[in-house]
Design a protein around this nucleic acid. Structure first.
Length: 582
RNA sequence: GCCCCUGUAGCUCAGCGGAUAGAGCACCGGCCUCCGGAGCCGGUGGCGCAGGUUCGAGUCCUGCCAGGGGCGCCA
């Protein structure tokens, strides 16, 4: 198939964009064709309008000139100027079928590995030791996991770092509570995952007893001073908590594991060096006994320069020091070319300051990117922020268990005929998938309304809908005699439903690109949902197994199978599994 | 007081400076001798307000209004 070799990428938009770019270049170097999907054609290029304005030319004439200079004959069936100077492009059916054949013949579905792979550190999840994981941790964990999987698929070397809160003043209180409970009782409580009760009881006792407060303060000093017995107790807290986190991660189905835990405490040995470095570069200013750096451009409420406090007046280190040490370590030791922080939006200014200081100190060179992948709040159905100490916090495990239960109930209502073990497995994929997808499908910078009913509803833009579309396709293949379509099949694209599905399939590469460009899983979700609806419409309106002839049948089977593969791959990149039956 | 984020249909959300602002839920109306009805086809309904920039603004700028968050020793 020479026609196939001409377009190695199954990224239709990129091919068209490149052709137009070449044509625009002959008129003026470096003009963006401004290629967009169009209602009136497959694509529209709007670049002629802006260029005409700059050159003082008639936009329609200029658009005509671009068309005349562009090599489009082999990929477009219709190219015309419309309106004030839009170039409307309709792709040639032969081009579409060749492109989709390339995609189908590729294990990676036409997604080329990044030409410039880089080492990326991604910091996400970060629960606190001896504290329950609640819905607030859902977003960071799920978004971080999706980005990790997708960046890795794109060919990058991704290093996960779970920056757990395992250090700081509360640990004096927590260790004393551990002592008061007795180690065995405490371990028993923690190992069953009742971190909430442990923390709450510790806090209650602490608040009520000045003696305990005194002991806690002393304990912090011992902990920071490296007292062996205190450290041992501290390690018990950490180990039990991490074991519990792993259980939650297992339920949630995310990649994080023990070796990814790089808690705040791991930077303790590097903190003195951070201060020394900053001192040597003359960046430190002593202020009321605290060592500060004043990055330019930050002011407090009085309009005075705002410090990043590296060392507190009592000699202790705050989280600014830890975060600086982490940057230094990730770039200096690990060789990260990019660092992603999947952390809530309220910390935006903190990260801006940390990055600014790290740049001033030379730890973060200009060619290393540091990005705060921020996400907004989780709101309750009442649109108020869900806060940890408000009493009515939802434990993450309970949320996940209920999601699975609801999936089971829904399956029971549909009288799904599966054996018990497969049934349980599918319920898990559906329930957990629904929770994850509900979170991922909303723009991460917007507040996310957590609503049981909506999240677990099995219609609309939800994971179960996508999973269902996938299962229906698998059912076609179970029903027919064939496992897979002959990979050499080149689909015929004539029927409007076939055509719409083909165009949708070819949107996969740009959709992944859009997700990675902006670190927005919601873009991939939107694409997958569009693909699923386009497929279902195709499937309802176009006979597949009962196609009029063998060639059409094979062609449609190919489109169906490819749809299933895109759905399965796309969802897996989001951390969501797909059952064959449901 | 200053800074950041958000404001799109009754509700939940898409909209990368371009043509008539799209979905889903809910509501209304069709489709079960037909490959899985957790579905398909169709309908009602909207850019917080006021200016400005632009050939063109939901998108960019300014002001206001509303909600949320942040603003030196908690993380």
């Amino acid at each position: 198939m020479p026609v196939v070799a001409k377009w190695p990428m199954a990224d239709t938009r990129a091919v068209v964009d490149a052709r137009l770019r070449t044509a625009f270049d002959t008129i003026e170097e470096g003009v963006d064709p401004v290629l967009r999907p169009s209602d009136r054609a497959d694509f529209q290029a709007n670049g002629a309008l802006g260029l005409a304005k700059r050159l003082g030319r008639n936009p329609r004439e200029l658009a005509e000139e671009v068309i005349a200079r562009a090599e489009l004959a082999d990929i477009c069936s219709v190219v015309e100027v419309s309106g004030p100077g839009f170039i409307n492009l309709t792709l040639a059916d032969g081009f579409l079928s060749a492109q989709v054949a390339v995609m189908a013949g590729d294990e990676r579905l036409g997604i080329e590995a990044a030409p410039d792979p880089s080492k990326i550190v991604i910091d996400y999840s970060a629960p606190n030791v001896a504290k329950e994981m609640h819905v607030g941790h859902l977003r960071g964990t799920v978004i971080g996991d999706a980005l990790t999987r997708t960046l890795a698929f794109a060919g990058h070397e991704v290093i996960r770092e779970n920056h757990v809160g395992d250090w700081g003043t509360p640990f004096g209180m927590l260790i004393e509570h551990l002592v008061d409970l007795g180690e065995e009782t405490a371990v028993a409580e923690l190992s069953v995952g009742d971190l909430d009760a442990f923390y709450r009881d510790a806090r209650t006792a602490y608040d009520a007893s000045p003696t305990l407060q005194e002991r806690s303060r002393n304990r912090v000093v011992l902990l920071q001073g490296g007292d062996e017995d205190t450290l041992r107790l501290w390690r018990v807290l950490v180990a039990e908590s991490v074991a519990y986190f792993n259980e939650v991660y297992g339920k949630l189905g995310v990649l994080l594991e023990d070796s990814d835990v790089v808690g705040e405490s791991s930077y303790n040995p590097m903190l003195d060096a951070v201060v020394e470095d900053l001192g040597e570069r003359g960046l430190l200013v002593e202020n009321d006994g605290a060592l500060c750096v004043f990055p330019p451009g930050f002011t407090n409420r009085e309009g005075e320069p705002l410090p990043l406090i590296v060392r507190k007046s009592d000699g202790g280190y705050g989280y600014a020091a830890t975060d600086l040490a982490a940057v230094r370590d990730r770039v200096g030791r690990l060789g990260a070319r990019r660092i992603l922080y999947v952390v809530g939006a309220p910390q935006a200014q903190h990260f801006e300051m940390v990055f600014a200081v790290a740049r001033m100190a030379g730890w973060l060179p200009d060619d290393v990117e540091a990005v705060h992948v921020s996400f907004a709040n989780v709101l309750g159905p009442d649109h108020k922020m869900l806060k940890t100490r408000s009493g009515s916090t939802i434990k993450l495990v309970e949320l996940l268990d209920e999601a699975v239960e609801r999936a089971e109930t829904a399956m029971a209502e549909r009288q799904v005929d599966l054996d018990p073990s497969e049934r349980a497995h599918v319920a898990r994929l559906l329930g957990i998938g629904a929770v994850k997808y509900a979170d991922l499908s909303t723009d991460r910078t917007r507040d996310y309304v957590f609503d049981w009913e909506r999240m677990l509803a099995f219609d609309g833009n939800t994971a179960p809908y996508l999973q269902y579309a996938h299962a229906r396709i698998r059912s076609i293949f179970r029903r027919s005699e064939i496992d897979h379509v002959d990979p050499a099949t080149v689909p015929v694209v004539t029927d409007p439903f076939e055509r719409a599905l083909t165009v949708a399939l070819l949107g996969f590469a740009p959709a992944l690109g859009a997700m990675l460009e902006t670190y927005s899983p919601s873009k991939l979700c939107a694409y997958l949902y569009d693909l699923a609806t386009t497929f279902t419409s195709f499937y309802e309106n176009t006979p597949v197994l009962r196609a009029p002839d063998e060639a059409t049948r094979n062609s449609r089977l190919l489109l169906a199978e490819l749809t299933a593969r895109v759905l399965a791959l796309g969802l897996s990149l989001l951390g969501i599994g797909v059952p064959d039956r449901m």
